[in-house]
Design a protein around this nucleic acid. Sequence first.
DNA 1: CTGTTAGCGCATTCAT
DNA 2: ATGAATGCGCTAACAG
Lengths: 330, 330
Amino acid sequence: MATIKDVAKLASVSVSTASIALNGNKNVKTETRVRVLEAAKKLNYRKNGSAADLKKSQTKTLALIVDDLSGPFFSELIKGVQDVTLSKGYDLITCSAIGGENSTPTRFLLEKRTDGVIILAHTLKNEMILHASMEGFPIVLLDRQLDSRHTIHIQVDNEQGAYNAVHYLISLGHRSIAYVSGNATSTDNHCRYRGFQKAMDEFGLEQPDKWNISGSFTEEGGYHTTKMLIMQGQLPSAIFYANDEMAIGGIQAFSEKGIKVPEDVSIIGFDDILLSRYTTPALTTIHQPKYEMGSLAAHLIFRALSGESFEQQLYTLETRLVKRSSCRQV
Amino acid sequence: MATIKDVAKLASVSVSTASIALNGNKNVKTETRVRVLEAAKKLNYRKNGSAADLKKSQTKTLALIVDDLSGPFFSELIKGVQDVTLSKGYDLITCSAIGGENSTPTRFLLEKRTDGVIILAHTLKNEMILHASMEGFPIVLLDRQLDSRHTIHIQVDNEQGAYNAVHYLISLGHRSIAYVSGNATSTDNHCRYRGFQKAMDEFGLEQPDKWNISGSFTEEGGYHTTKMLIMQGQLPSAIFYANDEMAIGGIQAFSEKGIKVPEDVSIIGFDDILLSRYTTPALTTIHQPKYEMGSLAAHLIFRALSGESFEQQLYTLETRLVKRSSCRQV
DNA sequence: CTGTTAGCGCATTCAT
DNA sequence: ATGAATGCGCTAACAG
């Protein structure tokens, strides 16, 4: 494999001159530059990026770490991140946190391969993130709060969003409302349940234990928990699912049992993923500003990178109720 | 920023011993390892990944380059790639090709930052890929064929798939069939059109020019071309959309005009993206084995990496007709 | 088991 | 405008 040394030799110049010529710097005679470029082409020369990074202080690269690269949430988030990153002339690389402890994310969190990291990955341990956090290496957390001076946090107002959802259900006349929760360990889930409770309490509504079921944040999770709900015999008049994917799984389960949404049971989700528009019925849900989360995250990274120190370490974005067709007036 | 040197000094060992200890190698007394680890923690030491890569010959990393990280096709492809990559103990990083010439992909194609690359990105120029291709650096192309000994190609049998789609339409009694094409420059599009033509020819069917409209491979593209189709006054009895996203845009356009699918017009797509299951009506389409493409691509990279030389450079995967509810018998 | 030595490939002073 | 020399941080022989 040809190195810059070989190129220099073939072009009869010094390594430094070759480097200058190769990197498009002005300070070379056109003639020599041409000679170097030709030599490079002849030798099929490729710069070694790692070596270059080693010399320079920065990589001009950001990493986005997520649990599920296939997920609907990621699909929208990435656009916001990408737009900002690109506009700053930085590169963006993405990887999944799936794969256990010493997996790919380690490389970006712990090995100085990027100038900053954005994280939306429950499976990453707090411990690892804390270990990675340090002055001058901005980390933006989208899925949790951490007690560290060196991480920046963006969250959506989950509690208020859930409150609004339940409030809407109640305003529609619903009195028996179930909560189908996602991952019990998730902060998001926790906050949403708080909002749910708050609205219920406010209106003096009780929620029997049997109507508080938990699964995972997936379509399958929603499907199975809904089946369980159905098997219990008596149905609530409305269900709040901790996210849209679960709600969609729920719709599927109901449809299979011949239970009609929203005629027999009203359903509301959380997130407003792309799919929600397409289900039958279209899903009423709480919109999360995913694009904005992404672009804000990237912006904050760049602000931190430019040496700005943050008084504020927590940014809260508002949600919005999106009324579609899965809830009915009773 | 602390380096391994500082750690070594603080632990009173040589740099090499520190390196060995840090990397979990067996050949150190537990006592010294502990000392090194403690020193590292105290100094908040982070390994510099670039420096490590520079020393080692390989990066143990694969890159997947795609145009659209938000796209439905990517979402399914990635799983296949990821599963295989992980099982081999490699890391996988993903980036978008959007962003013009000297953008992120360059780093992975031209700068030896990964051991191999999988590409599904029309916007990447042939020229750049050719430039990157070389012995010992496997590149798998999912979206085009290239005349290079150093690239491996996977394609789906687009022509046969399109033929099957149209054949199905014809078997349902349709005689006037329109083709809504995607990106004109795309090989996929080209092959699908050939399959379309072949089936039409075989049954002696004519396709008026006005029923051959082209847009882009997006929902919006399908929406607009369908609007145009509608404005032309007379509708075909069936439409073959070059991909599902366009078909979904088409359904939307029809729905807005009060034209019923499939009562008034039958629709078939191509790809079988996740969404197709959820549209109203559910979309009949040609399934592409996206997961299999991904895992095959990764497999081939590893085979190439293990020094295997390929007699075969083109792998063709079969499609499958998925009947749902968007086509009716006439 | 541990230390010494020698680069990996490149960008960058500082001379000339 | 060009060249010589230096070292980025790390790993891997090779000695001891």
